[in-house]
Design a protein around this nucleic acid. Structure first.
Lengths: 137, 137
DNA sequence: TGACAAATGCAATTGAGTTGCATTATACTT
DNA sequence: AAGTATAATGCAACTCAATTGCATTTGTCA
């Protein structure tokens, strides 16, 4: 989903278009890895005046509307990314680098869960922890 | 792994056997769902005198030794379970109930990640969020 | 342009988890 | 069984992410 029109996206969700919301979405779009709240607070505050509480509220409302995806990688804090196509993460336990992967083909498993357990899957998280190419050396 | 001998397990890891550690492990073993630190603190403190700091330290050391598995379900806090066989969770977004599932067959995907991305997977997390049988009604 | 609801700012607070340091208890030695 | 070294614990203070209440401001729509 390149070159997003975030104003239209917010509009579609009955969310008002504000500088903080659009700027936050642009920032997240630009980053290849999921970002934490402090990253966003620092970046936004270096561009204009915005309170950290506002950033947290924006992250919550955008996550509730499914625009963002909230992730946790065992760091005792949340990370966020645009909730676009189904993909997952390779998290290096040594250097902390986060790569994306796609094509996980979990949908077959989700169907099985529905028939076997009668649990209706709405979303899933799949993260791999290990060593990236560099850190295996 | 039923009827664990936690004293031997701790011994194997060069960890001293203490009342707090053994009691904590017994508590986690008894629970079918991953538990949070507050649950353990409350349960342990109702049985004997133990500080919350001690509980956090035990959770950390047991996780570092691979005896426990730390999980996060988007609640801004960690949950823990015994790190036994590979399994995953069905988390109901309505009532919060957590069920286990196994047989995820992710190992094929992990091999693919190694050859395609040269990323060495050490562990993975796979959680499904949705509606349990009761909450679909 | 006016009005109302939504969004934001500010200050205070919550709650999970950590740190430093003094004290205690486990496990090993003799 | 007593002595000892080291690991584990307790206590107090603290850190940091995230939330809450309430007053103020700002989008959006009539």
């Amino acid at each position: 989903m390149a070159n997003q029109n975030f104003t239209m996206l917010l509009n579609k969700h009955d969310l008002k278009t504000t500088q903080a919301r659009v700027s936050l979405l642009r920032l997240i779009e630009k980053e290849k890895s999921p970002v934490d709240s402090q990253f966003l607070i620092d970046k936004l505050q270096s561009a204009f005046s915005v309170d950290k509480v506002t950033v947290f509220r924006i992250l919550n409302v955008l996550t509730e509307h499914g625009i963002l995806r909230k992730l946790e990688f065992g760091e005792n804090k949340a990370r966020y990314e645009l909730n676009n196509e189904d993909h997952h993460h390779l998290i290096c336990q040594n250097c902390g680098k986060i790569e994306d992967i796609s094509d996980c083909n979990i949908s077959a498993l989700e169907k099985e869960i529905k028939t076997k357990k009668n649990f209706l899957v709405k979303l899933h998280t799949l993260e791999f922890y290990g060593l990236c190419a560099d850190c295996q050396k």
